[in-house]
Design a protein around this nucleic acid. Structure first.
Length: 370
DNA sequence: CAGGCGTGGCC
DNA sequence: TGGCCAAGCCT
C-alpha cells in the first residue's frame, strides 16, 4: 500500500477545511478572491508577517492599517525617517523588528528595484527575515512550495505525530513532516490553513478536536492527550530588577526626553531619564541619581514585565523653572507625547507622574502606588 | 544553542 | 490575579 495517497489526503482535507473556515484578515487574499485571480501584495504579506512575530492578530490589525495608510508601498517605507517608523511602531514591542523593517525596506528598494525577492533564499538574506518569515512570504505571496513552520504549525505537527522530543530539538523532524505534507498546488493556502488550524482549533489549551480535519489521523488525540504536545524545555524564572525614572516638566509645559542607544533593550526608542536597571537591592532608589538637580518628588512606583525580567521603577517628578541646559536630550511639549517613540514602560512612567499626559491614561496607570 | 528582546489579553 | 502565552529573529 502506497503512503502518498494518505499524505495528499491530509493536505486535501486541510485545504477543504480552510475553504470553509479560513479567517478573513486585512492582509489576506481569501480563497474566493484568489479564485478570481487576485494575488496578495508581497509588501502587505511581509509587513504583516513581521508584525505578527510573537504578536497576536488583534494587536497587529490597527498597526497594519496605520502603516499601510502612511506608507502604501515598500519604497515609501524605505524613504521614511527612521524616527517616524519607530514612533509608529511604539507599543507593539520587540523594537528590533522596526529597526530591521526599515533596513529591509531600504534593501528591497535599493538592491531589488522595489520588488521583494520571490525565493526563500532571497528573502532569507534580508534583515529581520528568518526561516519562518522567508518561507511564509515565499509560500503566501509567491505561491512557492516551501515548508512553513511557526509556533502554530509546531503544535499541529507535534500532535498529529505525537512527537515526544522536546522543542527546539524536535524542529528538524517537525519541519521534515511539514515538507512532506505541503502540496504543490496551493502551498500558500496550505501554510495559512495550518496556522489558522493552530490558532482556532488546535489551540494550546482545550483544543477543539471534534472540529479538526485531522482528528481521524491525530496520534496525540488517539493517546487522549493532545495538550501534552508539543513538549517544551522548562522555563526559567523571571528575575526582578529595579531602578528610577525622572519626569521633569518646565514652565512651558515641556517634558525632558532622551533617545536610548540604538541596540539592546528598547533600542532606538525614546525615554525619560532613568538610572540603570540592576538586580534588586534592598532599600529605596534615591533621587540622588537624577540627571540634574531639581526638587524631585516621589511620584509612586511602576511595575512592568518584560520577557526576561520584571522591572520596578521608582518614579520621581520635578517642576523646573527653566529649561535645564542639556547635551543628551530635549524638551518636548507634553501635548505632543503621542507622536513620540515612547515604549509602553515609558508611557507608564510618565502617566504615573503626569496622570493627564495621555488620552488613554487609565491604560498606563495601575492604581497601585507606593 | 541559549539567551536577549515587549506587550496586552486571557483564564 | 498572576502566570502563560502569540505567525521569531539575532547573536
Amino acid at each position: 500500500m502506497d503512503i502518498l495517497p494518505q499524505i495528499s489526503s491530509l493536505s486535501g482535507e486541510l485545504l477543504s477545511w480552510y475553504d470553509r473556515h479560513h479567517r478573513d484578515l486585512p492582509w489576506r487574499i481569501s480563497p474566493p478572491m484568489a479564485a478570481r485571480g487576485i494575488r496578495p501584495d508581497p509588501y502587505h504579506i511581509w509587513l504583516s508577517e513581521v508584525m505578527l512575530q510573537q504578536t497576536t492578530v488583534p494587536a497587529v490589525k490597527a498597526y497594519f492599517a496605520k502603516f499601510l495608510k502612511r506608507w502604501p508601498t515598500v519604497r515609501d517605507l524605505a524613504t521614511a525617517p527612521t524616527d517616524d517608523v519607530m514612533a509608529a511602531w511604539a507599543g507593539l514591542g520587540y523594537y528590533a523588528r522596526a529597526r530591521n523593517l526599515k533596513k529591509c525596506a531600504e534593501a528591497v528598494a535599493a538592491e531589488h528595484g522595489g520588488q521583494f525577492p520571490e525565493t526563500e533564499d532571497g528573502l532569507r538574506a534580508l534583515p529581520g527575515i528568518g526561516d519562518y518569515t522567508a518561507a511564509a512570504v515565499a509560500a503566501i505571496a509567491f505561491n512557492r512550495q516551501v515548508a512553513v513552520m511557526d509556533g502554530n504549525v509546531e503544535r499541529v505537527i507535534s500532535r498529529l505525530y505525537a512527537i515526544a522530543t522536546p522543542l527546539p530539538a524536535a524542529k528538524p523532524l517537525m519541519k521534515q513532516k511539514v515538507a512532506l505534507l505541503t502540496p504543490a498546488d496551493r502551498p500558500g493556502d496550505f501554510a495559512q490553513a495550518m496556522m489558522d488550524l493552530g490558532a482556532t482549533i488546535c489551540t494550546p489549551k482545550r483544543p477543539a478536536c471534534s472540529l479538526c480535519p485531522f482528528n481521524n489521523a491525530c496520534e496525540a488525540l488517539r493517546l487522549h492527550d493532545p495538550e501534552h504536545f508539543p513538549v517544551k524545555a522548562a522555563k526559567k524564572e523571571r528575575p526582578v530588577r529595579q531602578g528610577a525614572a525622572f519626569v521633569a516638566v518646565n514652565g512651558d509645559g515641556e517634558i525632558y526626553l532622551r533617545r536610548r542607544i540604538a541596540s539592546g533593550l528598547l533600542g532606538g526608542m525614546t525615554e525619560v531619564p532613568t538610572t540603570g536597571w540592576t538586580a534588586r537591592i534592598d532599600g529605596e532608589t534615591s533621587a540622588t541619581a537624577a540627571p540634574f538637580p531639581a526638587d524631585w518628588q516621589v511620584a509612586g512606583t511602576v511595575t512592568h514585565v518584560f520577557t526576561h525580567f520584571e522591572l520596578r521603577l521608582s518614579i520621581y517628578r520635578a517642576q523646573v523653572a527653566s529649561k535645564i541646559a542639556s547635551n543628551d536630550g530635549w524638551w518636548e511639549p507634553v501635548t505632543n507625547l503621542e507622536a513620540q517613540a515612547l515604549p509602553t514602560v515609558m508611557k507608564k512612567a510618565i502617566a504615573q507622574a503626569i496622570p493627564r499626559a495621555f488620552s488613554k491614561a487609565s491604560t498606563y496607570i495601575s492604581g497601585h502606588n507606593s
